[in-house]
């Protein structure tokens, strides 16, 4: 059936692709400008760009200071002050819009020491985090780390929980940490927050979260070789009778979806996955 939901359009597909290309490239005309000061030097750049894109517009080509370009990797830590404002600010260059009169510099690297450990040999307890990162005890509760965090995490709190040895709390509160190092740069007590939090999360994941019961059974099955025969058969079917193989696929897909759907009580669980 055609034309019920989508009427036939007479279009020039190649032209459309060219139009998309044009639409996605930077506009020729710039209407609004701002001036930013990159390490003190003024540059006029289009308003509405991220700091990262603005620097590129101004002619910089990143080697350091750009990773994911999407707020996930922490490569683009930036410090800035606004004109006439006393407050020292922190940001991710890829996730922050330029403002007129911004004085900024990117921090290409944060020196911070990570403790070395063999996770298998640690017996986690209330003092484990302090053993590996004793400096957390020096926290003066100034909250500067929290103010510096571009992910808006409660950094000071997780440090406080760390001192108390509450591994679970540290793991949960620090989960969204992208390890940009801005907290660590700002801390007057010279704490290396994000490394401590990494240890806490791994301890929590390994020793506190219960292990999956099903996983072990599946591994035993696989090790026993019990799927080998089935794989041989399915390979043969695919080679010798591709049409039948395809219908098997559709059958399993459709029936499986039906069956699995019935197992669900929680409506949120009905969601599809992604990406």
């Amino acid at each position: 059936m055609m034309g019920k939901k989508v009427e036939i359009l007479d279009v020039d597909s190649k032209q459309i692709m060219d139009d998309i290309k044009k639409a996605a490239s930077p506009p020729e005309e710039v209407e609004h400008w701002v001036t930013i000061y990159v390490m003190g030097k003024p540059y006029k750049v289009p308003a509405g760009l991220t700091i990262m894109k603005a620097l590129e517009y101004a002619g910089y080509r990143y080697i350091r200071g750009a990773g994911c370009r999407a707020g996930f990797c922490g490569a683009c830590a930036t410090i800035f002050r606004r004109k006439g404002e006393y407050r020292f600010r922190t940001a991710l260059a890829c996730q922050t819009t330029v403002e007129d009169g911004m004085y900024l510099a990117q921090i290409p690297f944060v020196p911070a020491n990570k403790a070395k450990y063999d996770l298998d040999k640690i017996e986690p307890g209330p003092t484990t985090l302090l053993e590996y990162y004793p400096e957390i005890a020096r926290c003066v509760s100034c909250n500067t780390c929290t103010k510096a965090c571009p992910q808006e995490l409660d950094v000071m709190y997780y440090i406080q929980y760390g001192i108390r040895g509450d591994i679970k709390k540290v793991a949960e509160l620090s989960f969204d940490c992208i390890q940009c190092g801005l907290c660590t740069l700002r801390c007057p007590a010279e704490i290396q927050h994000y490394h401590m939090a990494q240890l806490a999360r791994r301890l929590y994941g390994k020793y506190y979260l219960p292990k999956s019961p099903w996983l072990k059974k599946r591994l035993k099955e696989i090790d026993s070789g019990m799927y080998e025969k089935a794989f041989e058969n399915i390979k043969k079917l695919r080679e010798e009778n591709p049409e039948e193989f395809k219908s098997l696929y559709y059958k399993v897909l459709i029936e499986g979806r039906e069956k699995e759907s019935k197992r669900i009580n929680d409506p949120l669980e009905l969601m599809e996955g992604e990406d």
Binding site: L119, R201, Y204, G205, S212
Partner: peptide, 18 residues
């Protein structure tokens, strides 16, 4: 699991699978 990756799980350790 052994490395300590914090997957979403229920209280029995079952993975929340979508």
């Amino acid at each position: 699991e052994d490395l300590g990756v914090m997957y979403d799980k229920d209280e029995k350790g079952n993975f929340i699978e979508r």
